[in-house]
């Protein structure tokens, strides 16, 4: 078994809409996430529960340590959260990621192997 990081990339416009979502809509989305994560937990794939990120943030860059408003903006997506999972290999980790609700709204899940310590 090995550990992997899921990075949840959300479409920017989706993320912006979500910021204005009604409680009802929030509940629906949250429900889908909870269901998926529960499933992973039950099958022993959750290594450490990650967290959703707020849209705000800062970028610090280069030797001059220039600070600009975040999040990282050079793509059409924005990082919405992360999770640490355990899987047999990279392929299984990618397979498991297919259940992630972010995919329904055109987002992406980046699966990255973690350097074993």
């Amino acid at each position: 078994m090995a550990d992997f990081l899921y990075l949840f990339w959300n479409r920017k416009e989706v993320a912006q809409q979500m910021a204005k979502a009604t409680p009802e809509e929030w509940q629906k989305v949250t429900g889908r996430w909870t269901a998926w994560l529960e499933e992973l937990k039950k099958t022993g794939h959750i290594q450490s529960l990650g967290a959703p990120l707020q849209m705000a943030g800062k970028m610090v860059q280069g030797p001059q340590k220039r600070v600009t408003d975040g999040p990282y903006a050079e793509t059409k997506d924005v990082l919405g959260g992360f999770n640490l999972v355990t899987a047999k290999d990279l392929d299984e980790a990618a397979e498991l990621a297919k259940g992630c609700p972010i995919l329904e709204t055109g987002g992406q899940v980046e699966v990255r192997p973690i350097r074993p310590m």
Binding site: A51, P52, L53, G57, Q61, G70, Y72
Partner: peptide
């Protein structure tokens, strides 16, 4: 390189 600083919900 860059550091992205993001508050966690």
């Amino acid at each position: 390189g860059m550091v992205e600083v993001r508050p966690i919900r």
